[in-house]
Amino acid sequence: MKPFSATPDTQPWAPLEQRPACCVPKPFIEVEQLSLHYGQKPAFHGVTLAINQGCITAIVGPSGCGKTSFLTSLNRLTDLIAGCRVEGRIHLDGLDVLAPQTDVIHLRRRVGMIFQKPNPFPLSIRKNLEFPLREHGLRDRERLAGAIETGLRDVGLWDEVKDRLDSPALALSGGQQQRLCMARALVLAPEVLLMDEPCSALDPLSSGIVEDLIVSLRSRYTVLIVTHNLAQARRIADYAALFWTQNGTGRLIEAGTAKHIFGTPHEPLTVAYVSGMRG
């Protein structure tokens, strides 16, 4: 078991970057011995990890080691995949996520998700935000308009689209689409945000904008981000976890503060990965 330690880092290394005091090192999501199978094929096995409230936790590792699968088990999106089996325990602020009686609609409202490929609905920009809000019970026109504006302002999209709220969302650029997807998740006021390589389909400029946006979410949301970009993980993460494929199944190799993982990792695999020699 490698939970994040609550004791402050006493390493003599200089901090990677000055972090704001966002992190109450208080676990918000606790994952114990989690395994996932697609039919007979294991995707990852025996993952135990605690994710702290209000912090940005980066999950890194080579392709196919089960990072996406891990994220989707946290909001039970795995329910949608035929033949997918999840075992172990996930507690989210006391809620037993994997229990059959858990209300997944409610769970997914608390745990938002951003996908690798921006996927706005084929609706207008406005309807993309209005549709989920309505579904969750907000009907009042003025409050809807207010929530939509706040959501778009939060992702810095308001000034870019305020004159064309009724044009198709799919006409936006990739980066704008991804920010719209973030707004769509944020207007529902989730507590956790899962992000699966949110920048990997974007050009460097858009990627930078989205990255700044993620940093601005720190302390307001508990963010779990999968990224292939080690430099990005280094820049934005408070905590990091390395996944790796061993014996045909994904495993959690090492987890800890970003300082620890990128500065003084214990595991040889982590050392090799963060120094760019493997993966």
């Binding site: 909001n75 999106l77 329910d79 949608l80 997944v104 609609i105 409610h106 769970l107 997914r108 409202r109 938002g112 998700m113 996908f115 490929k117 996927n119 609905f121 084929p122 549709f131 989920p132 579904e135 969750h136 997807c181 769509r184 998740a185 529902l188």
Partner: peptide, 25 residues
């Protein structure tokens, strides 16, 4: 695209809503 189904589910939309307003059109 499966992406619509996944993102709709991730937003906590019910299966009926997804079907009526996204998949059917």
């Amino acid at each position: 695209p499966t992406g619509y189904r996944l993102s709709a589910a991730a937003l906590g939309l019910s299966r009926t809503t997804t079907l009526l307003y996204l998949l059917l059109p």
